[in-house]
């Protein structure tokens, strides 16, 4: 009867092997081959693909863009999520409804939220232009997307922050709910100011939640695709690494190089996530 546990585990093991490990192995292997279906033969080229990537100006500019997406996205979404979670920490009337409203942007697919926001950033009839003009902050309609790289990336990343901040908020809120109320009572009796309470009690004890939220933000911002692709097209002002992978693989049909780049993105995601983990995470006991 010793075989039973193995028999029970086999379907899942096959599933993971077939859907995660085998494709990953193919990607790693393929990144060392010259693989262009329109221009055979396929042959082993060693690190040629990686060398081509780093000498590709388009790839280099998207590395910069993606770094900006990650830095802006992770910082802003985490700070916003901490603030919103603290607002939701205590019970009050309408809290449940507010959480449901908060989660709405997260429930929209990336393409849909990008389309929704395209009507806000729009240079002809956008909400932002209209509001700014009504308040006489600008005298004529501005083009926000595709002009300066920094403004473009800020505008696009705000759309992604709109999408991911709700999940970060919920993750941090879950962590906040674990903090025992006695700690706050004690702090109150000792005459702690709200700021000191936040610095000395809330922030240290909510670190696990912040870590998960930040890692989640790192993963989605490093792999941003929908928002820049819908809002800014292939233009280099906002192109991300993941978009570049798509262009290399499916427009240039250079699969080997595409594999190599997606491998590099995966490695970068792992490294940055691990860095965040080391930097932010501390075990918490109550």
């Amino acid at each position: 009867m010793d075989l039973l546990p193995y028999a029970l585990v086999t379907p899942l093991a096959l599933f993971i092997l077939g859907l995660a490990l085998v494709p990953a192995a193919f990607t790693i292997g393929g990144s060392f081959f010259r693989m262009q279906p329109l221009d055979p033969p396929t042959r082993f080229t060693g690190i040629e693909n990686f060398r081509n990537l780093f000498s590709d100006a388009a790839v280099r500019s998207t590395i910069g863009n993606t770094a900006l997406y990650v830095v802006i996205g992770v910082t802003v979404s985490t700070v916003m999520a901490i603030l919103m979670a603290i607002i939701l920490q205590q019970k009050f009337t309408g809290r449940g409804v507010l959480i449901a409203v908060l989660i709405l942007p997260w429930a929209l697919p990336g393409v849909v939220s990008a389309i929704v926001w395209s009507t806000i950033w729009d240079s002809n009839a956008g909400l932002l232009n209209s509001v700014l003009t009504s308040f006489h902050l600008i005298d004529h309609y501005q083009v926000f997307l595709g002009q300066s790289p920094l403004v473009t990336i800020l505008a696009i990343e705000l759309v992604q922050i709109w999408q991911i901040a709700p999940l970060s908020t919920l993750l941090i809120l879950a962590s906040l709910q674990n903090i025992p109320g006695e700690l706050y009572e004690a702090a109150n009796l000792d005459g702690c100011s709200p700021w000191a309470t936040f610095r000395r009690i809330t922030l240290p004890l909510v670190r696990p939640g912040i870590t998960i939220a930040m890692v989640q933000a790192v993963i989605v911002t490093l792999n941003v695709f929908d928002q820049p692709y819908v809002l800014n097209g292939a233009a280099s002002t906002g192109a991300s690494l993941n978009m570049q992978t798509y262009f290399i693989s499916f427009q240039n049909l250079d699969f080997g190089e595409g594999y190599a780049l997606s491998l590099l993105i995966t490695a970068a995601t792992l490294v940055v996530s691990f860095g965040v983990l080391k930097l932010v995470y501390r075990p918490v006991e109550f």
Binding site: L98, V101, L104, V116, T119
Partner: peptide, 11 residues
């Protein structure tokens, strides 16, 4: 929170 989540959807 209300404005941030609902204004784009309302728009």
């Amino acid at each position: 929170i209300l404005l941030w989540s609902l204004v784009p959807i309302y728009w």
